[in-house]
Computed example of a mutant assay.
Amino acid sequence: MFQRFRRTRLNSHLRSLVRETNVTVNDFIYPLFVRSGEGIKTEVASMPGVYQMSIDEVLKECDEIKKLGLYSIILFGIPDVKDSIGSDSLCEHGIIAKAIRAVKEAHPDMFVVTDLCFCEYTDHGHCGIIDEKLETVNNDATLEISAKQAIVHAKAGADMIAPSGMMDGIISTLRDALDSAGYENLPIMSYSTKFASGYYGPFRDVAESTPSFGDRASYQMDPANRREAVAESISDELQGADILMVKPALAYLDIVREIKDNTSLPMAVYNVSGEYAMLKMAGANNLIDYERVVMETMVSFKRAGADIIISYHAKEVAKMLQKQS
């Protein structure tokens, strides 16, 4: 006798009842890119629907997304002046600190995550202080200024910090610094498994963070390494991370599942700019049913084990979910 799997597929209500994976608006963190000025909302050519915004426009965007049920954002700062150590990110009057304070004052119910890195703030586009001899980032020198940056974010009112530079020891460094400064309850969402990926191209347009020399392969992960990918995340868990992350998402769902099976921590994925841009282009050229494929992609992240999805699609998905309700 064979099993009739179709019995539970013939009625739409029964399909809903037995559905194993569901996407909700509460799954999402929406990335926003902030720069100085006023009345600035500049669309990024490679990422339709994504903007560089001045703080006043970010506050308007928060008004809009809250109406859709989105209450979690991750902020990226774009300074007017960049230097070798990303000084703007270490200053309490820098763009990211100003943005955090403004959002928390205008929208105290908004959950503000901050990306903690230096690539947007340095004139060389790398994620920390450069070791001139090795022509790569000096890990331990970067840990020192990362701790300073974390305190700036915390004092400004960040609700969670997300270090993305892939420096060894970053989680224990930040945890010690935050705890010592009285921020022991501030969570850390680690970019714990972040690959040296070709999917980041459009992000570098919006964040103006393309490296001026070389690449980031000496600190971001080799896409070919599965066991190392799991070890990176487990190491960050042991150092005190509160949430782990895999970035990019779509080409690494096997890694998401394996880490999920080896940790009890919540799992995030970053649905990155290249993934977003590909679907946008395919949809604009009528190659796919855009909304259907976007939702199918989000389901795939959840099914693989993601609890949190950082996505430029978040606002669109929230609108899709409203239409379904």
Rank of each mutant, 00 (worst) to 15 (best):
D222I: 03
N262H: 14
A304I: 12
I309K: 10
L287N: 09
L253M: 13
E296G: 06
P248K: 10
Y276T: 11
N262F: 04
I234D: 01
A249E: 03
S300P: 03
I288D: 07
Y219T: 05
D261N: 15
I255D: 01
Y252H: 12
S300V: 11
E232T: 07
V293Y: 14
Y276N: 03
T297V: 14
I288G: 07
R226S: 10
R227D: 15
R303A: 14
M267T: 06
E228Y: 09
S235K: 15
D236R: 04
G305Y: 01
P248H: 10
E258V: 04
G274E: 08
G305P: 01
I255W: 00
N271C: 11
G305W: 00
M267L: 15
I259H: 04
Y252A: 07
S273C: 03
G305N: 02
Y270W: 04
P248I: 13
Q239K: 10
R303F: 00
R226A: 09
N285T: 15
N271M: 06
P223I: 05
I259V: 15
D261C: 09
D242I: 11
T297K: 08
T297M: 14
A231E: 14
I310S: 07
Q220F: 07
M295Y: 15
K302H: 08
I259K: 01
G283K: 04
L287D: 04
R226I: 14
D254H: 06
P223Q: 02
S233M: 05
G240C: 09
L253A: 05
R292L: 13
E232F: 10
E296D: 12
D236S: 10
E275D: 08
K247V: 03
I308K: 08
N225D: 12
T263V: 03
K247L: 05
E275N: 06
I234W: 06
Y219D: 06
K302R: 15
E291L: 00
L279Q: 12
I255C: 01
D222V: 09
T297I: 11
D236N: 11
Y270K: 03
T297C: 14
E296V: 11
A284M: 07
A277N: 05
F301T: 04
E232V: 00
M295N: 12
E275P: 02
M298F: 08
R226W: 07
